[in-house]
Structure formats: structure tokens, C-alpha cells
């Protein structure tokens, strides 16, 4: 009789319930705190010791990003930024005071999640061909994309380098997993164990994506001076393409 009651009452709590409780109690908050402190510090150090890569922007230009891909990129970028901000608001809800502010943040998180998922689908297909992994991507990872030296040596990369490809696959396929787990967490329906598992996946994957997001921000705004313009105008300086995307063919 007690076994039957226990099954109806608590279910298999030890399977994911205990795991989720322990992870949320000690790990998730700390992972995000570490990401939000250590990564910016590392980038600050990189900026001061090695400094940004500078390329002549007044020379010949290469058309790099079509209009559609730029529009799709910025819709995804804006919604993803909101996702990161509001997601971190939930993680660090306590210092922010909790209550209505964070509840509003969760609504924004949901809305931007829907917008991001919609924009990620065309983004996936526009860049799929150029994002397929190649052998020289491994070489790119071994030399860390040449970002550890001040010299301008051509690095092995096609239209996109290994790091960009990693970001692309995590943001699209990982984004899909996040969207689905987020949908389950939003509804809070169905077996509790599924919800717990989704919460664990959502938190871990989000931590990885926040780290990649910070890296993408640093690379596009600081590490390569003026590279942000290429996503606005669509043109990259020929010198930059020759060094950072040496295998790129027009």
C-alpha cells in the first residue's frame, strides 16, 4: 500500500528531482556568475596585452554579407540580447529584488524567445553551406584563430572561421533545444520529471551560449577594430578577408 501511495504522491523523486535541487542550489548561479566575471576579465586582459587587430578600412572592399542575411542577423541579435539579459535577470533575481520586475523580464524572455526561434530558421539555411565544418577549422582552433599574436598572418578559415562555426551550430541547433525546453518550462505541464530535465538542460546550454555570446560581442566590437561595419554595410576590407578568411573565394 505505501509503495502505491508513494508512487502516486512523490513519483521517482530521486531520479531528477534531487539532481535538479542540488544543481540549482549550488551550481547554476555560480556557473553564470563565473561566466559573467571571468570571461570579460580575460577579454580585458587580451585587449590590453595583445590588443585589437586593425585593418585598413579605406582600401578595396569585399562584399561579404547580403541584405537578407544582415536583416536576419540583426533580428536574431536583438532578440538574443534580450534573451541573455532577461535570462540573467532570472538567475540574479535576488540582488535585483525579485517580484514584478523579474516577472516582466520572464514575459520579455518568452516573447524574444519566440522571435529568436523564428529568425534562427532562415539564418540556419542562409549560412548552412558556409558553416559546414572543414579540416582546416581544426588548425584554426590549434592557433586560436591567430588572436594570441599581434602579427597579421593569414589564418585558415573560409567565409566563416572555426569559432564562428561553433557559435553558429550552438546558436541554431542549441537554440532549438533551448526553445523547446523553454516552451516546456513556460507551460509547466506534463510529467514533473520531464520539466526537471528540461530545466537542467536549459540552464547548462544557456550557460554555454552566454559564454559564446560574450565572445561574439568582444570579437565583433573590440577584437577586430571596425568589423561591426561589415554586418551593417555588408562590406569587409580586402586586407581583413585576406588575413582572417584566407580561404574565402568570392
Amino acid at each position: 500500500m505505501w509503495q502505491t501511495f508513494n508512487n502516486a504522491f512523490t513519483g521517482e523523486y530521486v531520479q531528477y528531482g534531487q539532481l535538479f535541487t542540488q544543481l540549482q542550489e549550488v551550481l547554476f548561479g555560480r556557473i553564470f556568475l563565473l561566466i559573467m566575471t571571468i570571461i570579460p576579465c580575460v577579454f580585458l586582459l587580451h585587449y590590453m596585452v595583445i590588443g585589437p587587430k586593425r585593418f585598413a578600412h579605406d582600401g578595396p572592399q569585399v562584399f561579404f554579407f547580403g541584405l537578407v542575411s544582415r536583416i536576419v542577423h540583426w533580428i536574431a541579435a536583438a532578440s538574443f540580447s534580450f534573451l541573455v539579459l532577461t535570462g540573467l535577470m532570472v538567475i540574479f533575481a535576488k540582488p535585483l529584488g525579485g517580484g514584478t520586475l523579474i516577472m516582466g523580464g520572464r514575459v520579455v524572455h518568452n516573447a524574444s524567445g519566440i522571435i529568436f526561434t523564428i529568425s534562427a530558421i532562415p539564418m540556419f539555411f542562409i549560412w548552412l553551406k558556409d558553416m559546414l565544418p572543414t579540416l582546416y577549422d581544426i588548425k584554426w582552433f590549434f592557433i586560436m584563430g591567430g588572436y594570441l599574436s599581434k602579427e597579421k598572418v593569414p589564418v585558415p578559415a573560409g567565409k566563416f572561421n572555426g569559432g564562428q562555426k561553433m557559435w553558429f551550430w550552438l546558436a541554431t541547433l542549441g537554440g532549438f533545444v533551448l526553445a523547446y525546453s523553454g516552451y516546456v518550462l513556460w507551460g509547466l505541464q506534463g510529467p514533473v520529471d520531464t520539466i526537471r530535465l528540461m530545466a537542467i538542460i536549459h540552464n547548462f546550454l544557456a550557460a554555454v551560449l552566454v559564454a559564446m555570446f560574450l565572445t561574439h560581442l568582444y570579437m565583433s566590437i573590440f577584437a577586430i577594430a571596425g568589423s561591426l561595419t561589415s554586418m551593417i554595410t555588408g562590406y569587409k576590407p580586402k586586407e581583413e578577408v585576406a588575413i582572417l578568411h584566407s580561404r574565402y573565394k568570392e
Binding site: V90, G98, R106, L185, A199
Partner: peptide, 10 residues
């Protein structure tokens, strides 16, 4: 309370 649902999961 922010309505995150973590207490429900725990």
C-alpha cells in the same frame, strides 16, 4: 516571488 517554477520542480 518571480514565478519561475523552480520550487515546483524541487
Amino acid at each position: 516571488c518571480i514565478g519561475c517554477g523552480y520550487c515546483f520542480m524541487a
